[in-house]
Design a protein around this nucleic acid. Structure first.
Lengths: 217, 217
DNA sequence: CTCATCGGCTAACACTGTTAGTCTAACTTC
DNA sequence: GAAGTTAGACTAACAGTGTTAGCCGATGAG
C-alpha cells in the first residue's frame, strides 16, 4: 500500500516529464490550500508517486518550486489578457469594449484561481533569481499600460501621455477590488455582480470619453 | 547558557503580562521576516524566555497568535487614519487636505510596517473566529467610505450617494498602489515620491471638485 | 566493455506545531 | 491554620517538515 508500483523511472532524456508532473501537483495543492506552508514536498512527492528528495533533481528547493508555479501562473494571466484583447478586436469591438474584455479576462482569472492569484502578490521578491527578468509583476503592469495606451490612442490621442498613469491606476484599483472581494467574508464574496458593477463604475471615472463627442461613428 | 535565569513566573493575576510580551516578540519577528512560516513558536518562546508550550496558555495555537498580531495591526491602522483626519480638521484644513492627510497616514503605515501590511491582506479568512466581528478589513472599508462621505458632504452634496463607491475605489486603488510598490523590485521601491504623485493623480481623477466653482471661500 | 551520468532511492539531521502530563506557588475556603 | 484548587509555567514526546549525504540501477557514449 505504501509504494504501489515503484514507478519505473523515465528514460534518459525524459526527466522533464516528471518535472511537469511535480509542477502540476504543486499547482493543484497550492490552488486547493492557498498557503505556501500547506504545500509540502513530501505531499507532492506522494501525489506524483516519487520520494521527497527526488524533487530536488528538478527544483532547487521548495521556494523554487513555488516560484515556478507562480511564474507559470503569471504568464498564463498575461496570455489570457492579451488573447481577450485580440479576440475582442477581431470581433470588431470598439475601444471601450476591448478594455472591458481585458478587464473581464483579468477578473475571471482572479476568481477562477483565487488562491494562486492571491499568492502571486503575497510573496516577497526573491533576489537570487535572474535579475534580468525582474519580477513578473512588471509584465503585468506593462500589459495594463499597453491597454490604456491603445485606448487613448484611438479615443483621446491628446491625452496619450497619461497612458502610463492610467494603466497603473486601472491595474491597482482592479487588483485592490479583487483582494477586497476575496477577503471580505460574507457580503461581497460569492457575488460576482458586485465586482462587475464596481469595475464599470471605476472605468467610467478613470477612462476619458471619446474626444469627438458626437457623430464620429 | 540554555536557560539563563529560569524566569520567575508572573504573579497570580499577571498572566496578561507574558501575553503582551509574546505578542510583542511575535510582532517583531513577523515584521522582520514577513512570512508566517518564518515565525516559530519556539522562536518567540526563546526570545521571551519561556518554553514553547507555554505559549498555548495564552494563544489557542500559532494561527491564533498571528491573527491576534494582525488584529492589533488593523486597529492601529484605523486609529492612525482617524487621528490624522481629526488633527487635520483641528488645524483648519479644507476637505481636500483632510482626505490628503488620511491618505498620507495610510501610506506611512503601509511603508513603515511593510511586512505586516502585506500580511494583513494575504491571510485567508479564518471562519472559527467570533463571526459577529467579521473580518477587520470591513472596518478598513468603513473608514474609507466615511472619509469620502465627509468629503462629499462638504464639497459636492448632490453627489453624496456616490460616497460608498468612491470609498471603495479610493481604498482599493491605494492598496493596489502599495502592493505594486512593495512588490516591484528596483524602479519604484524605495522611492516614495512616486507613490505620492500617483496618489495625487488618483485623487484628482476620483474625487469631484467643489460644486460652487468660484469665490465660495 | 567500460564508465560516467541520469533518474531516482534510503537514511538521517535539525527543526517545526501540538498534546499530555507534571510541578510549584499562590489564592480560596473551611 | 490546613486543605484544596488553580494560574502559570515546565519536560517529554509524537508526527511531520525541508534539506543533505550517500547509494544504486539502468542507459547511453567512447
Amino acid at each position: 500500500m505504501k509504494s504501489q508500483v515503484k514507478r519505473v523511472p523515465n528514460a534518459r532524456g525524459e526527466g522533464e516529464r516528471l518535472r511537469q508532473e511535480i509542477l502540476g501537483a504543486a499547482t493543484r495543492i497550492l490552488e486547493e490550500t492557498g498557503r505556501e506552508d500547506a504545500l509540502s514536498l513530501r505531499g507532492v512527492a506522494r501525489e506524483v508517486g516519487i520520494s521527497a528528495p527526488s524533487v530536488y533533481r528538478h527544483f532547487k528547493n521548495k521556494a523554487d518550486l513555488v516560484t515556478t508555479v507562480l511564474d507559470v501562473t503569471y504568464r498564463a494571466l498575461a496570455v489570457a489578457m492579451s488573447e481577450a484583447g485580440e479576440s475582442a478586436a477581431a470581433a470588431g469591438a470598439d475601444p471601450w469594449e476591448r478594455v472591458r474584455a481585458i478587464v473581464t479576462a483579468y477578473r475571471r482569472f482572479a476568481i477562477d484561481k483565487p488562491r494562486r492569484y492571491r499568492l502571486m502578490f503575497s510573496l516577497e521578491y526573491e533576489p537570487d533569481r535572474p535579475p534580468t527578468t525582474g519580477h513578473p509583476i512588471g509584465t503585468m503592469l506593462q500589459a495594463w499600460t499597453d491597454t490604456t495606451d491603445a485606448y487613448l490612442a484611438e479615443v483621446a490621442p491628446s491625452r496619450r501621455s497619461e497612458a502610463q498613469d492610467l494603466g497603473v491606476h486601472l491595474w491597482t484599483a482592479l487588483h485592490g477590488q479583487l483582494v477586497l472581494w476575496h477577503t471580505l467574508p460574507s457580503a461581497a464574496a460569492g457575488n460576482e455582480t458586485i465586482l462587475i458593477e464596481l469595475e464599470e463604475s471605476l472605468l467610467r471615472r478613470l477612462l476619458p470619453a471619446p474626444e469627438a463627442p458626437s457623430t464620429a461613428e
